[in-house]
Write a protein that binds this DNA or RNA. Structure first.
Lengths: 172, 172
DNA sequence: CACGATCTGGTAATGATATAACACTCCATC
DNA sequence: GATGGAGTGTTATATCATTACCAGATCGTG
């Protein structure tokens, strides 16, 4: 049965991010607390910037945004440290195929078994649950006597909206 | 039924790369020819360097190796151009989670449906065929109205040998 | 052969991503 | 109030990748 907000997919055009961000911050507080970590002001600012959209953003994009919205420009290492802690807390993930980061809008277990769909046009990222897929991959790894630490499934392509837009363009 | 060299997994310690490289070069000649591309001396040198191990190597590692074995140091762009052509020919793949490149020792169709196992200790990479997995992922993407362009499955962990080594170390 | 189209790779500069090393502050704890 | 760990600042550097421009090689065609 569907819950109140089951949609971890691509948000519609008019989508208001504000409630997502609220939610995120609440879950972040929780996640940091249960891990005995601190959600410091810097980390929170970084998280807000990432969570402000459903897209994957690069570390240097974040630096720019923080510089615009905040006081003095941070050093890259500061952002990377904040990102590390957010990733460790499981509240932000890394999009490996793009060297970028995205906020996790879909609460899930810490052994992340999510297929990531990344639109290469609008940079939007969606996570969908993929238990069966991950089970299958784990079995294959075991068969090769490989000890899995982390599994990464990323699908690069076009979300429905971007696909439609591009279709329209090639028609014209 | 197993063929003469079905092993696309992790090579044993005493493994002699020479025949692999021979094979690789033969398949590379083939791959370039059928695509109307040219396997130039530079590209061949780069390929030999990658194929000389079963590990993923970074572009700048390659630069260093080429500089040591060859004449004058190449510019990064030269190596990247060679890598592009090798990747396009399907003879080298990119390990996205490490921004590195590895030679493809397992001939397969151009729509690559291979699960990549990458050992984080010895950097060895193995490809295993994952038809069913990729079918499943494609179905999930379709269900999300996502138009897949490329799918990436990478498993990061420890190969059997490295896992054993580390076990021994923690015991000690 | 002469011509132009295309491919290849050299040179130089720059952009983009990520980490190392070390110092200081803050704060919980003893 | 001494100690120690976590967090962050500062500075420098490492690593990954591309843009712009040009010279020479190669090849199909008249």
């Amino acid at each position: 049965m569907p819950s109140k907000r089951p949609d971890t997919r691509f948000p519609p055009p008019g989508h208001d991010h504000a409630p997502c961000v609220e939610d995120m911050l609440a879950r972040a507080d929780q996640a940091f607390a249960t891990r005995g970590m601190r959600l410091t002001p810097l980390r929170r600012r970084v998280l807000e910037n990432i969570a402000g959209s459903h897209t994957a953003v690069g570390a240097y994009d974040l630096l720019d945004r923080l510089a615009r919205s905040g006081e003095r420009r941070l050093a890259p290492i500061s952002v990377y440290r904040a990102l590390d802690s957010l990733v460790e807390a499981g509240i932000v993930h890394r999009l490996e195929s793009r060297n970028a980061f995205f906020a996790c809008h879909a609460p899930h277990a810490s052994d992340r078994r999510q297929v990531v769909l990344a639109c290469e046009f609008c940079a939007t990222v969606a996570e969908i649950s993929g238990e069966a897929i991950f089970k299958g991959i784990a079995a294959m790894a075991r068969a090769a006597a490989f000890k899995t630490e982390r599994t990464l499934v990323e699908v690069i392509g076009a979300c429905a909206r971007c696909a439609a837009d591009r279709e329209a363009m090639t028609d014209a």
